[in-house]
């Protein structure tokens, strides 16, 4: 959920962009971390852990841990807590260690 009113802060209205999450079309604000956009749309499970397949989400927000690694535009292990959202990004839940894109 996004805040509309805050006693101290103003959130400048950024440009809205469309991206996909596991094939579903979602909207977010350009330049905000992908994780923030997903969170605002109610998505909390970002990956499944490599060995036991446990659900993992947003945790440290500063690119320090490995909780939020997702596959973005085919590239695995992207830290979505710091990666800025761009128009048309293809974001996917990552299962396990991820696969390198081959082209």
């Amino acid at each position: 959920m996004r805040l509309k009113e805050h006693p101290i802060l103003d959130f400048p209205a950024g440009r809205e962009v469309v991206f996909t999450f596991d094939g579903k079309e979602l909207r977010g604000i350009e330049g905000e971390p992908i994780a923030a956009a997903l969170h605002a749309s109610g998505v909390r499970v970002l990956r499944h852990s490599p060995v036991s397949g446990r659900a993992r989400g947003f945790f440290c927000a500063i690119g320090n841990c490995s909780s939020c690694l997702m596959t973005v535009d085919g590239m695995p292990n992207v830290r979505v807590c710091t990666e800025p959202l761009k128009e048309g990004m293809v974001v996917e839940t990552q299962k396990g260690h991820g696969h390198l894109p081959i082209d």
């Binding site: 993992r56 947003f58 945790f59 927000a61």
Partner: peptide
């Protein structure tokens, strides 16, 4: 402790 919804305060 690793469930989505457990966050660091900074996050």
């Amino acid at each position: 402790n690793d469930l989505p919804g457990v966050y660091g305060a900074g996050a």
